[in-house]
């Protein structure tokens, strides 16, 4: 009988080889393994089934499973790449990869476009932006008169919607973000540079012979 405790990683649904995931992302093998430590804690926080449910996702983000929010739902849906209603490890790593400080800016622009294209029509429509503004106002308890919201929308669409058809297409979004780079701030997580020090226990559970740096 061995005294080392097995993590049972091979039995985690959707668990993909860290070497392959590292080859497809900006993460090193060690960082993928450190992310697995984070993944394990999130995916076992409500039901220990090796998958992240929406409830577990929200609990990890807000420490509160009851918080229903338009943005949190949208981010979850984008992480749920295979549209299964849950996030597996491959989804988790590939989605977080977009938030890596070294990820290509184009990937960040694409992800942010999908985030704001709430109904996935390929356009960010004015009514979607208004819906998100109203959600933000509710969340922050900030009060803005409807007329002010409309003025903000007018100004935004005047700048972003170059052909003035009432919706922002991908190319218009790209140009708008290039002119307003602060819009991509939410798309970078500096924490992702330090995940091996945040989750050092990965070294005890590593499945690769030599830890890549």
């Amino acid at each position: 009988m061995g005294c080392l405790q097995s993590t049972g990683r091979r039995h985690v649904p959707g668990h993909e080889d860290p070497i392959i995931l590292a080859s497809q992302t900006a993460f090193t093998v060690s960082e993928v393994e450190a992310l697995f430590e984070l993944y394990k804690s999130i995916s076992s926080s409500v039901i220990d089934d090796g998958l992240i449910s929406k409830e577990e996702f929200q609990l990890a983000l807000f420490k509160n499973r009851k918080k229903e929010n338009l943005f949190a739902n949208r981010v979850f849906d984008l992480f749920d790449v295979k549209r299964k209603g849950v996030i597996d490890f491959g989804d988790f790593v590939r989605s977080l990869n977009v938030f890596h400080p070294n990820a290509p800016q184009e990937d960040k622009i694409d992800f942010s476009f999908k985030l704001y294209d709430l109904d996935s029509t390929g356009y960010i429509e004015r009514q979607e932006v208004k819906q998100m503004l109203i959600a933000l106002l509710c969340e922050s308890e900030m009060k803005l008169a409807d007329e002010t919201v409309e003025m903000i929308l007018d100004k935004t669409f005047l700048e972003a919607d170059v052909d003035q058809d009432g919706k922002i297409d991908k190319s218009e979004w790209h140009n708008f973000v290039i002119k307003n780079p602060s819009l991509l701030k939410i798309m970078t997580l500096p924490y992702l540079r330090d995940i091996t020090t945040t989750f050092p226990s990965f070294v005890f559970n590593s499945e690769v012979d030599e830890i890549a740096t």
């Binding site: 983000l61 807000f62 503004l133 933000l136 922050s140 708008f176 307003n180 819009l183 939410i186 997580l189």
Partner: peptide, 29 residues
């Protein structure tokens, strides 16, 4: 009504202030 007011923030700058779009919660223990 002055849609060109230089002080007016754009809608996406405002939306980006949502705490629900900040994924750093994953890393804060």
């Amino acid at each position: 009504k002055s849609p060109d007011s230089p002080t007016l923030i754009n809608a996406f700058q405002l939306i980006g202030m949502s705490s629900c779009l900040d994924l750093s919660g994953f890393f804060e223990k």
